Simulated scan of single mutants.
Amino acid sequence: MFGFEDNLLHKLARFTHVFTANSMQERFWPVHAPQVGHALELMLHDESTVGQTFELYGPTNYSMAELSELVEREIVKNRTPLNIPKFIAKPAAYYLNKAIWWPTVSADEIEREFHDQVIDPTAKTFKDLGIEKTPEVTDLIFEYLKGYRKSAYYDLPPMTEKERREEKKYLHVLDDQ
C-alpha cells in the first residue's frame, strides 16, 4: 500500500535504500491506503460481506525497479541499489537486527523480495464493493514525496511526460558572457 507515511514509497525515497536481494524484480499491484480503508469501512457495515475474502489491489502491476525509477524521478535523485545474494542478505539482516537497536530490514523482508503478488481472478475486489476507480501511484507520488527533494528542486512542479521528452532533445549550455 502507498499513502501518507507509507512503508513503500518512503522506503524507496530514503537514503538508506541501497541494498536489494532480488535486483528489484518483485512484482506487485500497489494500492492507495485510504482506498483500502474505505473498502474496509464498507465491508464492516455491509452484512453481505461476512465470511467473504476480498483481494484489494491497485490498477497497475509494477516491479520494484519500475517503482524505484518513478520515485527517483520525482525526488530528482539517481541511485543504483547494490544487489546482495539472498544467502548472504538473510543472515546479515538477522545479525544486524540483533546488533543495533533501531529496526532495519528483516530476514522476512528479504524473503518477500522473491515472491510476486499473485491475484486470484475469482476473488472479490473493489468493484464488488461498488468502488469503481482506485488512484494510480503516478497520480499521487509527487504529493507524497515532495519533501525528499533537494532544496534546489523543491519548488519545481512534477514534469509531464511531454516535458521529459522535450528536455532530452536539447543540450543545455551555460554562457559565461
Rank of each mutant, 00 (worst) to 15 (best):
25 Q>S: 13
52 Q>H: 15
52 Q>K: 15
62 Y>N: 07
148 Y>G: 05
85 P>F: 10
35 Q>E: 09
127 K>F: 07
7 N>I: 03
44 L>F: 14
95 Y>F: 12
83 N>H: 10
141 I>C: 05
72 E>F: 01
111 E>Y: 06
75 I>C: 04
52 Q>A: 11
44 L>A: 14
7 N>R: 07
30 P>A: 08
111 E>W: 01
154 Y>E: 04
151 S>N: 06
93 A>L: 00
33 A>I: 12
87 F>N: 14
162 K>L: 09
36 V>Y: 12
145 L>G: 04
94 Y>D: 03
61 N>E: 14
50 V>F: 08
3 G>F: 08
111 E>T: 06
73 R>A: 03
29 W>G: 07
101 W>C: 12
77 K>I: 00
165 R>T: 06
80 T>L: 13
164 R>N: 09
138 T>C: 10
74 E>P: 01
16 T>Y: 03
159 M>D: 10
118 V>F: 06
114 F>W: 14
38 H>P: 11
165 R>S: 08
116 D>V: 00
142 F>S: 09
10 H>E: 15
128 D>N: 15
121 P>L: 07
34 P>G: 13
115 H>P: 00
89 A>Q: 02
77 K>M: 02
129 L>Q: 08
55 E>T: 05
144 Y>D: 02
54 F>E: 12
2 F>L: 04
119 I>G: 08
47 E>R: 12
149 R>C: 06
126 F>W: 04
130 G>C: 15
97 N>D: 05
117 Q>V: 03
100 I>V: 13
21 A>D: 01
161 E>A: 14
24 M>I: 01
55 E>G: 08
2 F>Y: 15
146 K>P: 03
83 N>E: 06
6 D>I: 01
17 H>L: 00
169 K>F: 10
42 L>C: 04
140 L>I: 05
144 Y>S: 09
88 I>C: 13
71 V>L: 00
90 K>Y: 07
129 L>A: 13
75 I>W: 02
149 R>N: 03
112 R>H: 06
141 I>W: 08
16 T>M: 06
109 E>Q: 08
77 K>Q: 10
78 N>G: 01
51 G>L: 09
55 E>A: 09
57 Y>S: 14
58 G>Y: 12
147 G>T: 05
120 D>W: 04
3 G>W: 02
26 E>Q: 14
156 L>G: 00
162 K>V: 11
19 F>M: 05
41 E>M: 14
15 F>H: 08
71 V>K: 02
51 G>S: 14
138 T>P: 06
104 T>M: 03
133 K>D: 11
11 K>E: 04
130 G>F: 11
66 E>Q: 15
